[in-house]
Every structure is written in C-alpha cells, then in structure tokens.
Design a protein around this nucleic acid. Structure first.
Lengths: 162, 162
DNA sequence: TTTTATATGTCAACATGACTGACATAAAGT
DNA sequence: ACTTTATGTCAGTCATGTTGACATATAAAA
C-alpha cells in the first residue's frame, strides 16, 4: 500500500497539510468551547447565550440587527436566547435615541458578571497557547484565521480590531 | 468614559488581544463550516455527518470507540448519525479480525466521493488563507491551535500528524 | 400626507444533534 | 465461571437552528 505521507507527489503533501489544518481547527474549537460550556450548563444556558453575551459585552448599545449579522442566525433563533437573557436580568434593551425602532442591547451588572465568568477560563486557555507559541506564532494565527473569514465580513472585523 | 483600547494599562491591552483571538476563532469557524454545510443540506445531512465521514475517511478501519473519543459526543448521538450513513451506503462496518466485538468503520466508494465533495471547498478556503498568510504564518497558526487543544489529546493528535 | 420600507417581535411547526439513563448482546480477559 | 469491554438500542428531553406568516412602530420617500 502506498504511504500517502511519504509520497513524493507534492499534491499529496499539500492535501495532507490542508487536512491537518482543518482538523486542527476542529479540535481547537472543540476544546476552546469546553470551559464556558461547563459553566453555562449551571445556568441552564447554552453556547448561543454565551455568544450573545460576548458580543453585547463587546459592543454595548449594538442593535439586534447588528447582532444577527455577526451570529449569522435567524431572528427567531436569536429572539429565544435574547428573551431568556432579558427575562433573567442579564441583558437589557433601550430604545434608540435617533431611531426609536431600534432596541439597543446592553449587559446589566449581572450580565457583565456572567460574561466575565465565561470568558475567564477561555481567555486563560488562549493566553497559555499564546505564551507557549510565542508572539510571532500569534501573528500567524491571526493572519490565517482572518484569511478563513469570508471577504465581506473581514473588512468589518478588521475595523473593530483597531 | 475610559477608552479601553488606548488605556496604558498592560492588562487591558492583553485582555483586548485575547478577546480578539477568541472572536477570530469564532468567526473563522463560522465561515469555515459554511461551505460544507450548504452541500450537506442537499443530502439532508448535518455537520455531524461531515465530522463522521471526515474522520472515518482519515482513519479507515477505526473503531466506534475511537471515533467517539475524537468527536467527544455520546454513543447515542453518534449512533443516529452513523446508522444513517450506513443505511444510505456511505459507511460500512466490518467485524474486527482480532477483537470480534469491534465494528471497524470504512467509507464506501460513495462515502469517499461524498467526503471529497465536502472537503474540496473547505480545503480551497484553507489553501487560500495559507497562501495569503505565508508559510511562517501557517506555522504559527498550527502552533497556537495545537496549544488550544487539551493536554490529554494533544499528544495523540501530534502522532497522527507525522 | 399617503405610501413604502425598515427594525423588531412573535406565533406555529419542524429538524438536527446533543444529552441522560437503562438495558441487551457478544466477545474478550481474569 | 465471572467480570469487563465494545457496541447497539430504546425512551425521553433539551438547545439551537430552520421556514413562513403576520403584527407593530417608526422612519423615509413619493
């Protein structure tokens, strides 16, 4: 049987490299979500709640439409999660001053607290990986991940990273 | 109000850097799964089917227990997906020669075909990101992702990457 | 001012993929 | 013989996504 990995054909080498890159992303994402997932379950919340809380925390006063565009889910999916967060006092909505159709989203004090609890172990994991890999590797990590993002969103994200 | 990003406190700078690293992983994973997800829906399959097909394709003859350990889901979750893939002729099981309790997993010809269709656009996306970021950045991407993986699994994964 | 478009919310129905807990079978190991 | 392991399966539940339809308030355009 042909050993793919030691085959001299450069296309095979390339495919193996790409497949490893794909698997790495799967494994990293799997473990990177595991810490917050555990904490969330004690609140009877899921990963979707974490995403909402994270992005509202990062963008206080953002609109529902902006959050939908980031999460790429439907209004109905978000609305369930959002109303649970509002009912339980982690998120609040305020009418937009300029456009009063908008419901601007904010974390409450409990919301800020929850966000911190969720992000702490996740930040610790990323910090450790950064530390072990070194500054140059971190730059590469960022470059490649940015390249994996669809073109239309990349520009927007870059702006928020200033 | 204090502007977090221009604050001289190095802890704030560090936290901002970590939060960006977290968001990047979210965005990249979101878009990296979007191509296969579209194709899967034409088969009425979901992301879980893709994962199974991917890992069985990469590890022909793997056991159910090995696949469970990689996916980190329960037996019951996998069994639904696996029996659908078997029923529809994408995966086949063979009794283990040494240990006849084991059901060794293989892709059929259709399974190999499906796996290719799913992985092609995903590989293309990764290839583009790699090309644009450069070889050094790819090395950093791999290092950091490897560091995000939990310790117990990192050694196993490294071995499969030889 | 009337009309149209936008931002948001909500209802009903459904699919997928995860979970727990219990139980069954065959085969391997002690 | 007994215990453990590898796998499968049943029943029920939950979280999170989907589509499609419709309602309301407000803004923007004609």
């Amino acid at each position: 049987m042909t050993d793919i990995k030691s085959n001299a054909n450069p296309l095979f080498l390339r495919e193996e490299e790409l497949r490893q890159g794909i698997e790495l992303l799967f494994y990293a994402y799997r473990d990177f979500t595991s810490d917050p997932d555990e904490i969330l379950s004690t609140y009877r919340f899921g990963r979707a709640h974490h995403r909402a809380v994270h992005f509202i925390g990062r963008n206080p006063g953002m609109t529902v439409a902006e959050l939908l565009a980031i999460l790429r889910i439907t209004k109905q999916s978000l609305s369930r999660v959002l109303s649970q967060l509002i009912d339980r006092g982690f998120v609040e909505q305020k009418k937009g001053a300029e456009d009063r159709r908008q419901r601007l989203l904010y974390l409450t004090e409990s919301g800020i607290d929850l966000e911190l609890r969720l992000s702490q172990p996740q930040q610790a994991r990323v910090a450790r990986a950064y530390r072990e890999a070194g500054a140059e590797a971190v730059e590469g990590y960022r470059k490649v991940l940015m390249g994996l993002i669809k073109d239309d969103d990349r520009a927007r994200i870059k702006k928020t990273f200033r």
